[in-house]
Design a protein around this nucleic acid. Structure first.
Length: 104
DNA sequence: CGGATGACGCAGT
DNA sequence: TACTGCGCCATCC
């Protein structure tokens, strides 16, 4: 049953467990931008968009996203230096694509 | 219908 | 680590 790309992306995103994150690249290998486009179009509440971060752990939705993630206990690495953006500790909170497919 | 655009990723500098 | 350039692909104009 080949669902179109958008549906596959949403299905994987919905499989991300609370407290963990995955990346745009995991949701859509080869066309990561598409993942962002799809999440942006998805109706609010239909998908945990805040659990999707960039490959390096940085956030695409700034402060709003940071709050939601910290609320779920996602670990962050912030350098003490001011001016630097917070990044998720990928080594600990990142769920790889394969794991999402299994849990699917 | 060609070109610009984006919630990206990666290699090179 | 930061910045740049280029590839990706569905949408918009």
């Amino acid at each position: 049953m080949d669902r179109d790309r958008a549906e596959r992306i949403l299905a994987l995103a919905r499989a991300i467990p609370e407290g963990f994150v995955t990346t745009y690249g995991d949701l859509s290998p080869g066309a990561p931008r598409l993942a962002g486009t799809v999440l942006a179009a998805a109706p609010d509440g239909s998908v945990p968009w805040h659990r999707v971060v960039r490959a390096d752990g940085s956030l695409a939705q700034g402060e709003r996203q940071r709050r939601l993630l910290e609320g779920e206990g996602v670990p962050f690495v912030t350098s003490g230096v001011a001016g630097r953006r917070p990044r998720v500790e990928m080594e600990i909170a990142h769920i790889p694509r394969e794991a999402l497919i299994d849990a699917r």
